[in-house]
Amino acid sequence: MAVCSDKTVLNQWYAIGATEEIEPERMTETVLLEEELSYTVDALGSPKVWRTGHDAGELVPSQCVYGYVWTCLGEASGEVFAIPEFSEPDRRNMNAATIGVNVSAPRAIENFLDMGHFPYVHTDILGVEPHTEVKEYDVEISIENDEILATRCRFFQPMASQASGGGADVEYIYRVPHPFCSVLYKSSPVDDKRMDVIAVFLQPVDQEHIRAHMMLSVLDEDNDDKSIRLFQQTIFGQDKPILENQFPKRLPLDPRAETPIRADKSAITYRRWLSRKGITYGVIPAAA
């Protein structure tokens, strides 16, 4: 019996580890939705994931996508959502880090969608006072793909990425194609027609703990992987205490539970979208 009774959550694909950090044939243990798993990747790059708690030994579906091993503990349907940019030949793709955070997955997604905290939490990097205004932006739920799309997001950033030469107004597009994953596109400092991709693939360990996998797909010919990675880790390290001090740890879906402001438009849409999907894992569902 699965511990998680939320079928929608159970039937999703989840990233559980970066393939480049796994030695071929070596077994790694992890926990997803309170279930113990082990996984390996063979020399040819094929993954294998199996249960080690209840039904120990039972193989579960797996695939390698975007540099991670993904698995599904319910009924796997369809593919992992598309990130077409990932396969563009001139992009640098990497796992910036996998970090454990004591927070529910939806709280972490909501923080990822929020621009209002940039000047206060990522001071002198992703924002700086007095440039604190979150300008009007658009949010919609794409019927076709069943995902949230926030567009026309703009923010003044002193140092938007490792490749930045200085402060600039940066454009953001956010996608939420999965209840616990988000893909962010931001203006590339080196190519004004294209965008860098920063994705978070959250692995809910339980309802209040996650492993956050941070995938980067960036245009940058000058900086080495290390400095691109460390830049993102610095940002994520600044978010971590904010995330871990959220109270309650689970995301309340009742619209009256927490008072949003205009800048929280994408968060409001996200909460509604989770409610409509009937998500119960990692949230406090609205009273019926």
């Binding site: 796992n95 996998t98 290390k226 400095s227 990675r229 880790q233």
Partner: peptide
């Protein structure tokens, strides 16, 4: 900079 994690540099 030393890539302590995940690079174990």
């Amino acid at each position: 900079a030393v890539d302590f994690y995940p690079g174990k540099e």
